[in-house]
Computed example of a mutant assay.
Amino acid sequence: MHNSVPFTIPELSSMKRTPEKLYYRGNLGLLNRPKISIVGTRRPNPYTRAITLELSKKLSLSGMVVISGAAAGVDAIAHQGAGAENTIAILPCGIDLRYPAANSELIEAIESHGLTMTPFEPGFAAREWSFVVRNEIVVALGDVLIVTEADIGSGSMRSVEYALAMGKQIYVLPHRLRESAATRQLLREGKAEAIDDIDIFVALMSQRGRNSIDDTPFVSFCRNAPTYEEVMVKFPNEIFEAELSGLIEVRNGRVVVV
Rank of each mutant, 00 (worst) to 15 (best):
G29Q: 05
D199T: 14
A82F: 01
I137F: 02
I95Q: 01
S154G: 15
V231D: 04
V172Y: 00
C93I: 04
D151G: 14
V39R: 00
L53M: 15
L244W: 04
P19L: 06
P34K: 02
D214I: 15
V172G: 02
I36Q: 04
A70V: 03
G155S: 10
A225L: 01
L61Q: 14
P10Y: 14
T52L: 09
G73K: 10
A203H: 12
R184I: 02
H175R: 06
S68F: 06
G29E: 09
M1T: 07
E54V: 05
N135K: 12
T216M: 03
S4G: 06
P174T: 05
F131L: 12
I95R: 02
D75K: 09
A194S: 15
R223M: 02
T87I: 07
K58W: 00
E105H: 06
M1H: 06
G253F: 06
A150D: 02
I95A: 03
L61N: 10
G81E: 00
V132Q: 12
N86A: 04
V138F: 05
N135Y: 07
L91T: 05
E111D: 14
L91G: 03
Y99F: 15
L115G: 06
F131E: 07
E229Y: 08
Y99N: 10
G190P: 03
H79I: 07
E108T: 15
Q80F: 12
Y47F: 15
S159G: 14
Y171D: 00
I239D: 06
A150H: 01
F218K: 07
S104K: 11
V255Q: 11
S4C: 08
G153A: 14
L31S: 05
E20R: 09
E121S: 12
V65S: 11
R176A: 13
E105I: 05
E136K: 09
E241A: 15
A71Q: 14
E54Y: 07
A71I: 02
R25D: 11
R178G: 03
N3I: 07
G155D: 11
G81Y: 00
I146H: 00
M117S: 10
L91K: 08
K191C: 08
A72Q: 14
F235K: 01
L28S: 08
F240C: 12
C222R: 00
S56K: 01
N27M: 05
D96C: 13
S212R: 12
I90V: 15
A102L: 12
K21E: 12
A70I: 03
G40K: 03
N135R: 13
R25V: 15
G190H: 02
I170D: 00
V255H: 07
D214G: 07
G209D: 09
D151L: 13
A102H: 12
I67R: 10
R98I: 04
V132F: 12
L28Y: 05
K16G: 10
Q185T: 07
P119I: 08
H2Q: 08
I200W: 03
T87W: 04
